[in-house]
Design a protein around this nucleic acid. Sequence first.
DNA 1: CTGAAAGCGCTTACAG
DNA 2: CTGAAAGCGCTTACAG
Lengths: 371, 371
Amino acid sequence: MTGLINVEGSENAACDRSQAVSIRDVARAAGVSHQTVSRVINDSPNVSEGTREAVLATISALGFRPNRAARALAGGPVQSVTVLATNTSRYGYAAAIQGVEEATQEIGFGMGFRTLEGIASEDMPAAVEYAVEPAGALIVIAFDPAGALALECAPSRIPTAAMIQAPPPGVVPRQPAVWIDEFAAAKQATEYLLGLGHRTVHHLPIPSWWGTTPRLAGWNAALQQAGLPVPALLAGGWTAEWGYEAASALTRDRSVTAVLCGNDDIAIGAMRAMHEAGRAVPDDVSIIGFDDVPHARFVCPALTTVRQDFATLGKACFAKLLEGVSARGKVIKRAPPQAELIVRETTGPPPHQTGHRAAPTARAHRSEIDR
Amino acid sequence: MTGLINVEGSENAACDRSQAVSIRDVARAAGVSHQTVSRVINDSPNVSEGTREAVLATISALGFRPNRAARALAGGPVQSVTVLATNTSRYGYAAAIQGVEEATQEIGFGMGFRTLEGIASEDMPAAVEYAVEPAGALIVIAFDPAGALALECAPSRIPTAAMIQAPPPGVVPRQPAVWIDEFAAAKQATEYLLGLGHRTVHHLPIPSWWGTTPRLAGWNAALQQAGLPVPALLAGGWTAEWGYEAASALTRDRSVTAVLCGNDDIAIGAMRAMHEAGRAVPDDVSIIGFDDVPHARFVCPALTTVRQDFATLGKACFAKLLEGVSARGKVIKRAPPQAELIVRETTGPPPHQTGHRAAPTARAHRSEIDR
DNA sequence: CTGAAAGCGCTTACAG
DNA sequence: CTGAAAGCGCTTACAG
């Protein structure tokens, strides 16, 4: 098979590429043994500079690409990661997955993906086991119960890292994990609402499976710190549909003037419910979301929300994973991102509040009302 | 390593699983050769019913899982697919990816994923080549230029299928491909607007790279068929931001009373632009989107849009891929989904239209205004 | 229908 | 610093 180097002649030159160049082909062409080629592609220090360069040149001339399956089989280093997540289409998950993808691409890792939806608890161990490639690592997005279960099922033999909801103070996750400090942001968002003059803030949470979530805890802390009673809570949900249903129930209660939502989908559902109930946002009720989905600033009124950079979280998670793995090449460490309150149009003072419109402490957060 | 079978005793039994049972372990335990085990796991017909059952029993007793890397390396059948897409977080892509994922999971295929964003054209062939696993297949989401390029770069040696924009009549895609018939839906949506009494319909397209898109063509056809001039077009975009900018330009033109948008993000951006310009939706201008993202029915006013079932499209694409591959097991064929106009609240008769409110031909499409 | 042979492309030790 | 050996777990032919 010739024509590997001379690509310019052919019809769609840029798009053709013939079959498999092996480590032995490279070795032959470079006049070394295939082991030496192996050392070069694995960045072994035991290669003289001269041969290294010669081999590298031959590699690129021949267009050699190491066969991932062979490397895995032969017991090579970890070189692929599979991401486990409940689903793909929820914004935070999709963005996190994309972050991992970019990070893996940078260092030439393969990336697999497996969805957790519809897997029964008793099948989870086998599913996790089977999901990861032979010499592969594992990243699990454990924001929800299914993800958390998958994480528990990860065999200790497989290098694993996770994106999780922030653990309560003092609790150390059993696996390498990253998270966004949502507690502070939720507290800040709640305080912002209180600062606007609201007597209390209600919360429409995302689901929790150990009794609380950082978002919920932050909300709770702000209320308690202000000496306010904490309103009753519904079990959580994820979708706009759930937010719509949950907020509809709140609609009859005139004491509800501010609602902190567990995510933007819930917030958008809640806005709809308020709209249908004839409650104006933000004049009658203020709403804050969580995540800052791309359309949050375009809905009407534009959604005040807590921005979370899931793509960066995904990258941080991958970096965390690499710490525990014989990582070749430089691992760019990344700190997990900070959550950030973005004030837009769904928040304002409560109704019947004459005059003294508590000056929103605008310095503290970013405003995008005037985009 | 013992304890493989007896899992009930241990602490978190459901979550433990020890290392690698090989084909030889199974063979030994079943009293056959490892080739016979191989035949069984590959559904070869050349195995007597008795030994097959015995081997199968041993496999499940031992918890044997074939090593994917070894199968690939030894030249086994295709058993994994990698999906190439511009990104992960755009709704249609995310949903399509999830559809593929579910389909692969059903038949035990591995699934890889690679993002196209940021890959220079000249690097595309290598990127595509390197993305797919050794004995793997390829699915590319070619809704956009980067995807289309990746598809062109797919080496013929790799089994490939694609999700594409519907090709113009008479054009046969060079690769196995599936698509949603958006032409008819776009035409229907345009006709619906015309039927409401609008004098013309403007279009905010998604990008095209061969001069048109099915959505654009359907819009165009409806206009022409009605003997109407076709309004000038902007180059396309994908995001709410783009839709916002594009619609802002339209805002000063009072003849714009109906806008068909290339997707829901554009539509939401357009709604925002109209809102800021003091043009009421749908009283001053009607807007229709494309896709039916999950929040479309919750925004205010709820978005009239053309629903597209990308998850099913993804499954259909995987089924198409399997047609060209020595597929073991039953392949569930799936027809690509149909697009469907969902009438909600962003559409109505044009302003200054006294009286005769052209009866919306409501039978023809689904209405969800009363959810 | 079933087993003994050879090899997929790479990697680790092991010798120099 | 470099090469000859053995093997990862599976699969195809090839012989019975």
